[in-house]
Structure formats: structure tokens, C-alpha cells
Design a protein around this nucleic acid. Structure first.
Lengths: 218, 218
DNA sequence: GTCTATAAGAAGATAGAC
DNA sequence: GTCTATCTTCTTATAGAC
């Protein structure tokens, strides 16, 4: 990785742990293995480093959104995939979403940085909200819309159903950001949550409830 | 209010908006109406102001927890109150919880400050998690336990049911912290969420579903 | 308890050699 | 592109008069 990129990487790590104001240019330079003045050959000042991180993340998010939309556009194919989704597949869906957000290094550091800096300016709050709340709800909502349309799930309000699926995942995620030692507990709760979600929203409730115990054999 | 207390109050306001490191002792003094050096007659240094805020909040939380426990101890009386809880009363319950957390000035500023400072040290993360996640879940869980016991609500897992009730409220709360202009949208979503929660967990689902539309006449 | 003056030190940023 | 030396500014905190 070139120096310019390494500066962003080390800065993001530090910003996500201590916040912008508590990170000194010398700290960043130190981790990169250069002296502070050298860093100014790569970026005009400290703020420019922060801005570059935001810019790079916006770029990554756009790529990601693009990828999601390609899936979403081919609704017929997606509907086929999810037409027979089982409880275990639903759990996998939630677990993958959770673990990706929690363990993807860039996503995790970026979310923590935004958590700390979100009140510093409204544009940062908007980025946080879009990336970790609005967009996941929108994507999951599209998915659940298909599941309702194909008769797997049943609800009068897909939007609320999606919140019932995602809000617990979000709450467990930010819990693990602040208390990483509770990740195992979170995984257990996550699984229980999705089983109960499935039981509440499956079309044929009686059958599902009867099946639930025999599904779980771990 | 005496100067010592006013310093804490203005400091909390500033810390909750800009974070500890971006607030200067002179800013706090300025808002109190004194000069920075005078402030050192009241507190040893800047950190002591922060610590005093945490200490005062811990005191308030203990009082609050005490009050809750008094209610919780008299389970018979509480059970009577909630034995006939209607959908509208459940909505009130959620709305009150939400609005108290969102609008109570001290609670709101303190939560925002902890949001910003939570990664700075593990004890702050623990306070946040206890106050805004674990304790509400524990209190609501106790309540829902009674509702299940008295046959109003139905579930195999009260803990998950409680998360299904509270996690959306939490998610909407932190959304309003960062985007206050979305409060009305949040209130609408909150109400829809609780109606659907009620419909999912009420014992006699068929009756509830039929009643749901006529309840709503606004 | 409040002030003015000021010390002490930290941190961002630049100059200029290599 | 990296370094050392240095400037400048900002911020905490103290000294000592009133």
C-alpha cells in the first residue's frame, strides 16, 4: 500500500478509537513510520485526511449500493431464491448482515468514527443514518416485500415488519461496538430473535410453530 | 442555581454537542458568566468537571432505579394496572418511554455526551449500555412478564418479545438524536410499530386484528 | 470568588536541507 | 519524499491583586 493510502488507514484506526480531536498528526505519522512534517507532503492538513476518509467511504458505499441494486433489479431471480426460504436461511441472512457489519474492518472502524463524530456536523449524521439505518431498512424491506408477495411471510405493513427484523440486529451491533466481549451473547440473542420473528410472520403459523422445535437440533 | 452547579450544566451542554476535547475551559466559564481562572476555584481541572457530571448522573440513575424498583416490588398492584392494558395504553407506554428519553433535557444531553465519549474508556461504554439498553430491557421485560402471566400477551420467550418492543424504540431514539427534524416521522413509525407488536403478541389475535381498524380513528 | 497577567506546554503547520 | 529545526497559535492552569 502506498504512503498516501497508509495514512488514511492508520488515521481511520486512530479516529475510530479516540476521535478526531484526540488524534495528533504526529500519532498518525508515527504509525505510518514517518515524521509529522513528511505527512504534509501527502495531505494539506489534518482536516484533509479526515475528508479523504469520508470521500473514500462514500466511493465504497456507492459501489456497494450499485451491487445491491443489480441484485434488486433482477427481482424475478431474487424472488425465486427466496421463495422457499427456510427458518435456517432467514437466520443466516440476519447473521451474515450482522457479522458483515460487525467484523468488516473498514465498515467497523468507519461506523465507530461516525458514531463519535456524528454531532460535529449534520452531514456526518446523515451519512451514518443512511449507511447503518436507512439503507439496510430499504434493502431488507425490498427483500421482505418479495417474501410477502410470494406468500412466505404475512403482514399488513412490510415497513414495520422490516423494522422488527432489523432494529434488534442494529441494537446488538452497536452493543458489540461498545462491549465486544458480549459478541457471543449477541449471537445467541440474534438467533433467538430471528426464530421468533419467523414464528410471528410466517404465513402458516401453526405449522411453523410445530416445526420450530424439531428444526433446532444443535 | 449556584455557580458550581451551573458549571456542570453548561459543561454538559457543550460536551454533548462538541465532545470533551473540543470544549475549552474558557467556553464553559464564558457561558457561566465568569472567566476561566475563576472556574478553577470550583473544580480542580477540566477532567474534574467531567467526572462530576458522571457522578451526578450516577446519583440520578440510582434514584430513578430505586423508584422503578418500588413499583416493581409491588407486583400485585402493577399486575392489576396492566391486566386490562389496551392497544392504546400500550402505545402510550411506548410513546412515554420514547418521549421521556428524547426530551428530558438532562437525559438527552447525557446520552449524547456518552455517545461521543463511549469509546474513550470502557466504563463510559458500560454506563451507556446499562442506562439506555440493559435497564430499559430489564424494566420492560418485567412488565411484559406480568402481561404474559395474566394472559394478555402470548409468547414463548419474554426476553425476545421485550427486544421486539424496545429495539425499534431505541433505533428511533438515536435517529432523533442525530436528525431531530425526523421526530414526527419517528412518532408515526413508533405508533405503527406498537400496533403491529400488539397484533402479533396479543393472545386472541383474530379479535385484535378485527378491532385494530376501528381503534384508529384519528 | 472573581479578576488580570502570565507561565508552561501541547499541537498544527512551515522552512529549508538532503 | 523524508528529515530537523522552528514558528505560531491555542489551551490549560497558576500567581497574586482585589
Amino acid at each position: 500500500m502506498d504512503t498516501r493510502q497508509r495514512i488514511l488507514d492508520e488515521a481511520l484506526t486512530l479516529f475510530s478509537e479516540k476521535g478526531y480531536a484526540n488524534v495528533f498528526v504526529a500519532d498518525i505519522a508515527n504509525r505510518v513510520g514517518i515524521k509529522a512534517p513528511s505527512l504534509y507532503k501527502h495531505y494539506k492538513n489534518k482536516q484533509a485526511i479526515f475528508d479523504a476518509i469520508i470521500a473514500e467511504m462514500n466511493k465504497r458505499f456507492l459501489e456497494q449500493a450499485g451491487a445491491l441494486q443489480i441484485n434488486g433489479a433482477d427481482a424475478a431471480a431474487d424472488a425465486d431464491i427466496y421463495k422457499t426460504i427456510s427458518e435456517e436461511q432467514l437466520i443466516d441472512l440476519g447473521r451474515n448482515l450482522f457479522l458483515y457489519f460487525l467484523h468488516d474492518d473498514y465498515t467497523r472502524r468507519f461506523r465507530k468514527m461516525l458514531t463519535i463524530e456524528q454531532f460535529h456536523d449534520a452531514s456526518l449524521a446523515k451519512i451514518y443514518q443512511k449507511q447503518y439505518v436507512d439503507d439496510p431498512l430499504s434493502y431488507q424491506g425490498m427483500l421482505f416485500g418479495m417474501l410477502v408477495a410470494s406468500g412466505i411471510l404475512q403482514t399488513e405493513n412490510v415497513e414495520i415488519m422490516t423494522i422488527h427484523f432489523y432494529a434488534p440486529i442494529y441494537m446488538l451491533l452497536v452493543m458489540c461496538d461498545r462491549e465486544p466481549e458480549r459478541e457471543q451473547e449477541a449471537m445467541k440473542t440474534l438467533e433467538d430473535h430471528i426464530r421468533q420473528f419467523n414464528s410471528l410472520y410466517r404465513r402458516d403459523e401453526k405449522t411453523i410453530r410445530k416445526n420450530r422445535n424439531k428444526h433446532k437440533e444443535q
